[in-house]
Computed example of a mutant assay.
Amino acid sequence: MRESAAERHDRLLGLVRERGSARVSDLAAQLGVSPVTVRRDVEELAGRGLLDRVHGSVSWPQDHAGAGAAPGTAGGAGAGGGPVLGMLAPSATYYFAEVIRGAHEAAARAGARLVLRISDYRPQEDHARTEGLLAAGAEGLLIAPGWQHPGDPEAFGDWIASLPVPTVLLERRPAAGSRLDGLDRVCSDHAHGVLLAVRHLVELGHGAPLLMARADSPTAVAVRSGYAEALAVLGLRAPQDVIDSVPAESAPDAFEAAVQALRAAVAAGVATAALIHNDVDAIQVVQRLAELGVRVPDDLALIAYDDEVAALADTPLTAVAPPKREVGRHATELLVERLGEGAGAPRRHLTLLPQLRVRDSCGSPLA
């Protein structure tokens, strides 16, 4: 299967994080891609503040020194003798880049040191990587497991409840009544975000929108369940089954089939609006629909979910924006507070509400 840009970005970040700095030509050889591709990747990652560029080389940002400690390095006290916090994230790009940034900012304000490890969405490796954080001196943990499928929490999650230090889950909702359900956690309310999107389209005069969504992450699963809840709240029926989406880079044929299904629904008058998870898919869908003669917003009002790059589309996309940076910030503040409270303090489940950022892709209200 062809590697996605996000996967390549994570590998690139991992190489730079381990070495501290590296030449673009060396990274290209290690990643098995052209120097032009690496330079383009570096430019994007540097624009997000995840790397520094200097004359043909890249380095880990100096102000991220604590957050980006190389795997296996020994921990130490944070700034001013504060605690060492370990963070496990499934990715350092796209959605979780902002979560990590929020956590790093909050740790710096608290005088703590944040040590980061990336699971690359391999939940079977989460336990070993977390043990590495503990070995690096982590006194508390921020854990976003690399779960992708509904069965992953049961198959790869029980160990989290037995960790020897205070732990806060990030953007993960374990099953009610499970051992993990008793942990502190900070999450985005994706059901609320979907409701904002569906309600906005209905208020513009559209019927129930179609949903085109992935099924390869907890966010995707939450968007799907939130869609059913939103329709029920608004007294609507889905115009047809959810259209399964996949990354265009790794599964071009399946992606094309999904776009064709959406085009057929628009042509048949099944729906005049759609919600698409995620941003990258939404932008590529709009581009392909235009080639097929379907115009956004003239023929189809469209809202994207995630709001990572939605504003950069040719027609800027209205998007649901989960509070990613705030999730990282509040989780870190909760963990620091927990370290000072002791084991007897009540656990907390903090849910943050997404926002709807209205742009051009929904057009004007229907007559």
Results as ranks from 00 to 15, higher is better:
Tyr94Asp: 08
Arg109Asp: 13
Gly111Lys: 06
Ala128Phe: 06
Ala112Glu: 02
Ala108Trp: 02
Ala112Lys: 08
Leu134Met: 10
Ser91Arg: 06
Leu133Gly: 10
Thr93His: 06
Ala89His: 06
Ala108His: 05
Thr130Lys: 12
Tyr121Leu: 12
Leu116Asp: 01
Tyr95Lys: 00
Ala128Lys: 14
Gly111Gln: 00
Arg122Phe: 07
Tyr94Glu: 01
Ala108Val: 14
Pro123Asp: 09
His104Cys: 06
Ile100Trp: 01
Leu116Pro: 02
Ala107Phe: 04
Tyr121Asn: 11
Arg117Pro: 01
Arg113Leu: 10
Gly102Arg: 05
Ala112Gly: 05
Arg129Glu: 01
Leu116Thr: 14
Glu131Ile: 11
Arg122Ala: 14
Ala135Asn: 11
Ala107Leu: 07
Leu114Val: 09
Leu133Glu: 06
Leu133Thr: 07
Pro90Ala: 03
Gln124Asn: 12
Ala135Thr: 12
Leu133Ile: 09
Tyr94Ser: 06
Ala108Met: 07
Ala135Glu: 15
Glu125Ser: 14
Arg109Tyr: 01
Ala112Leu: 07
Thr93Ala: 09
Tyr121Glu: 11
Ala108Asn: 07
Arg129Cys: 08
Val115Leu: 13
Ser119Trp: 09
Ala97Asp: 12
Ile118Asn: 13
Gly111Glu: 04
Gly102Ala: 08
Ala106Tyr: 05
Leu116Met: 09
Leu116Ile: 04
Arg122Val: 06
Thr130Asp: 07
Ala107Glu: 00
Asp126Ala: 09
Leu133His: 11
His104Lys: 12
Leu116Phe: 12
Arg122Lys: 15
Ile100His: 02
Ala110Arg: 14
Gly111Pro: 05
Gly102Asp: 03
Ala112His: 12
Tyr94Trp: 08
Arg109Ile: 00
Gln124Pro: 00
Thr130Arg: 12
Val115Asp: 11
Gly111Cys: 03
Ser91Leu: 00
Arg113Glu: 09
Arg129Ile: 10
Ala92Trp: 02
Ser91Trp: 00
Ala103Trp: 03
Tyr95Gly: 02
His127Trp: 14
Tyr95Arg: 09
Ala110Val: 01
Leu134Arg: 11
His104Pro: 03
Asp120Val: 04
Ala89Ile: 08
Arg113Gln: 13
Ala97Lys: 04
Ala112Cys: 10
Ala92Asn: 00
Arg117Ile: 03
Leu88Val: 07
Leu134Gln: 09
Arg129Asn: 02
Val115Ala: 14
Ile100Ala: 04
Gly102Phe: 08
Phe96Pro: 00
Ala112Met: 05
Val115Cys: 09
Glu98Met: 10
Ile118Ser: 04
Val115Asn: 11
Val99Thr: 02
His104Tyr: 05
Glu105Arg: 15
Ala97Phe: 08
Ala128Thr: 14
Pro90Gly: 07
Asp126Tyr: 13
Ala106Arg: 09
Arg109Gln: 15
Asp126Met: 12
Val99Leu: 13
Arg113Ser: 14
Val99Ala: 06
Tyr121Cys: 02
Val115Arg: 14
Asp120Gln: 13
Gly111Val: 03
Ala97Met: 04
Pro123Phe: 13
Ala106Phe: 04
Leu116Gly: 07
Arg109Met: 05
Ala89Lys: 01
Arg101Tyr: 10
Asp126Arg: 11
Arg113Phe: 04
Thr93Glu: 01
Ala108Leu: 14
Tyr95Phe: 15
Phe96Val: 01
Arg109Asn: 06
Ala108Asp: 12
Ala128Trp: 07
Val99Arg: 05
Gln124Ser: 15
Arg122Asp: 11
Leu88Ile: 05
Pro123Tyr: 14
Gln124Gly: 13
Pro123Glu: 10
Ile118Glu: 08
Thr93Phe: 00
